[in-house]
């Protein structure tokens, strides 16, 4: 690790004031410290946010929204009884990620800023436009079987590894941030950026901005009875997604009155397509409908390397997640969250 300055500000204002180019905010550290060890990231200063007061609460706001402080730990959010009742799919997504130990340390704010697992980003000896703008992309003709099939560019084919973010995208979350220029809100759809020509710009955060909270609108809790997160992976647990899908449905009189679908591990951000959701409204849930929705969600998908199989896998995962959601949220969190071995197969 390259030496760095360390400061632990007492207030959010102090934290923002401490920011300078090359500095990094430290939350749970589960991703940042790891990347500092490999040398992929070498911040000159760490601004420790973990002791900031007031950012570790889960609150029910007067308007019915749920507000999650950025320093709430992933495990605490997933196991918060009220939260898990209102947003069971978000809890399931959280519990399908990483391990018990990592979830105890990782903050929800930090989860939004998780870096890609692309091996060439992680390895400081490989050219990577995301890590080192203009260096080139080693992944494009390298070991890329797990990388993007949507929204990628010639400059970068990385995927976002977060499970939580896929669920948040489906739930219309809003990110509250504060920075040198004051506070603002960013809708989740706008939060993560596609690479385009500037893959080094990963989020809509301005320099020095801090995530202070994530808000879930009251309306999203209306999906609580029919929502699932489904994640394919190369082992039963403690693995990043090959592909994943967050699906949520709302029914009125046996017809679909509301639908949400977001795909994970397919692009540099959670992938949500409004048309795929809209076409389900007013319909009766069945396999054909969910296949059609998956078709539309994957419209434009193309291999960025040796990963064409991900298109079919993502399609099937999306359709299955919708079918599972239609079947209903399980009464209890599955023993293997988001696994096909925690639910039912339909074929």
């Amino acid at each position: 690790m390259t030496p760095f300055d360390y400061v632990r500000p007492a207030s959010l204002a102090d934290a923002i004031a401490a920011w300078e180019p090359g500095a990094a905010y430290l939350g749970g550290g589960t991703n940042l410290v790891d990347l500092m060890k490999t040398g992929a990231l070498r911040p000159g200063k760490l601004i420790d946010l973990t002791r900031l007061p007031g950012l570790d609460r889960i609150e029910a706001l007067a308007n019915g929204d749920t507000r999650i402080g950025a320093l709430v730990r992933n495990a605490d959010l997933a196991h918060d009884a009220d939260f898990a009742r209102a947003f069971p799919m978000v809890a399931e997504a959280l519990l399908s990620g990483a391990s018990g130990q990592l979830r105890n340390a990782a903050t929800v704010g930090g989860n939004l800023l998780q870096r890609t697992r692309c091996a060439y980003f992680q390895d400081p000896h490989s050219p990577c436009n995301r890590r080192d703008p203009g260096a080139g992309c080693a992944a494009r003709s390298g070991d890329n079987g797990g990388l993007a099939i949507l929204g990628w560019s010639a400059a970068c084919i990385a995927t976002n590894p977060s499970d939580f973010c896929v669920a948040l995208a489906a739930m219309d979350a809003v990110v509250e941030v504060e920075g040198p220029d004051g506070a603002r809100q960013i809708s989740f759809a706008d939060f993560h950026l596609l690479p385009g020509e500037t893959p080094e710009r990963e989020t809509a955060l301005h320099p020095g901005e801090v995530i202070v909270a994530i808000r879930l609108p009251a309306a999203s809790a209306g999906f609580r009875a029919h929502s699932r997160y489904l994640k394919l992976r190369d082992r039963t647990s403690y693995a990043f997604a090959l592909v994943s899908a967050a699906a949520a449905l709302r029914f009125e009189g046996g017809k679909i009155a509301g639908a949400r679908l977001a795909l994970g591990a397919v692009a540099a951000r959670p992938w949500r397509v409004a048309e795929a959701e809209a076409l389900m409204i007013g319909q009766t849930p069945d396999r054909a409908l969910f296949d059609t929705a998956a078709d539309v969600a994957l419209n434009g998908a193309a291999p960025s390397g040796d990963n064409g199989h991900k298109i079919a896998l993502a399609h099937r995962t999306a359709a299955r997640a919708l079918a599972l959601a239609a079947e209903g949220t399980p009464a209890q969190m599955p023993a293997f969250p988001a696994s096909v071995f925690g639910g039912h197969a339909h074929a």
Partner: peptide, 24 residues
């Protein structure tokens, strides 16, 4: 998994080189 261009192993860690976990 080797990168044929460099001869390096691109999954040389426990997140990429999978061995079973208890749930397996």
């Amino acid at each position: 998994r080797f990168d044929a261009r460099t001869g390096r192993i691109m999954n040389a860690d426990f997140a990429g080189y999978h061995i079973p976990v208890n749930a397996d």
